[in-house]
Design a binder for these strands. Structure first.
Lengths: 165, 165
DNA sequence: GTTATTGCAAATGATTTGCACAAGG
DNA sequence: CCTTGTGCAAATCATTTGCAATAAC
């Protein structure tokens, strides 16, 4: 957990008249210890390794807090869980490309896209607040070479590649 | 239900070795009878008015079928239900602007956005399949005039304006 | 001391599923 | 007939919540 996240969280907590707790600290540390996306359940597992006494409910509640504090963002990857993305602090306006073949998620930024969306939104009479762009695509690598390193990794890790309950 | 939807559904059903049924017909008709977004539950209500014997399970199953047939698309409006959008047949690449103030959802198309996303995707080594752009925004009208017709309508209809379970 | 927070287990709510019966081809 | 589809009710599964005990401040 680097650059002032803790400070920003504490500031938010104070502003709201809430309390700093050991659980919130540990959960926040777990959230921002990597730049990987995660689900609530995955985070719960990770947190548990640090402190086996933290409950699932507290993890869920703290996730809500971090989202409200605008330190963390919920994204929708099309499976049926909320995925959390800790990278919006570093890249406040990034987008996601999801590979349909291997489930790999790439983040990318593009100033042109941002500008264009901003224009379109204003033209429609609105003030843009946030945009969510998800591009689903196939990998060229897999098509050309018949194989894709991400796919192999995904299979090894037993990742489910598509959809729903 | 206009232009060839029934035909396309029947073709899909045949191709898959499935069966045409009265329920599927009625549900498809209800789905494409308006251009409004809807949830499974809303559709279930609408269908029930036509035929009170159709079950919730069949509605869900048929929605899955229509999505698979690529006649209907699932979109995520940030509440916790899948929303269905029947307008992708007419506008295969439209996007959504959601007003944070009133919950109003606008659809818009923009060839520049499409082109840009396509370029970005290829540059990253992928073949674009589908894009989902959601812009959340505030309405200027509300800010300037202190009121917004959609907000009034939303309140009257008892619509919940934000988030989650 | 108050009030917010936590852990637990039970509740929720959208969606899915197992099964026996009904209906398409 | 033979298989797919349907209705029903029960099951799932991620997430939320009520409540009594605990910990901030």
């Amino acid at each position: 957990m680097d650059s002032g996240i803790k400070e920003r969280l504490d500031a938010f907590i104070e502003r709201k008249g809430l309390r700093r707790t050991g659980q919130r600290d540990k959960i926040a540390r777990a959230v921002f210890s990597k730049d990987e996306h995660f689900t609530a359940e995955e985070l719960f597992d990770r947190v548990r390794r640090t402190d086996p006494d933290i409950s699932r409910a507290t993890v869920y509640r703290t996730l809500g807090l971090l989202v409200e504090a605008d330190l963390l963002r919920e994204i929708d990857l099309g499976d049926n869980q909320t995925t959390y993305d800790p990278n919006f602090l570093d890249k406040p306006s990034h987008n996601h490309l999801v590979c349909i073949d291997c489930g790999k998620v790439l983040e990318f930024e593009d100033a042109h896209i941002d500008l264009l969306n901003d224009c379109v939104t204003r033209r429609l009479g609105f003030k843009p607040l946030r945009q969510t762009l998800k591009i689903e695509a196939n990998c060229e690598q897999l098509r050309k070479n018949g194989r894709c390193p991400n796919l192999i990794a995904a299979r090894l890790s037993g990742k489910r590649l598509r959809k729903k309950r």
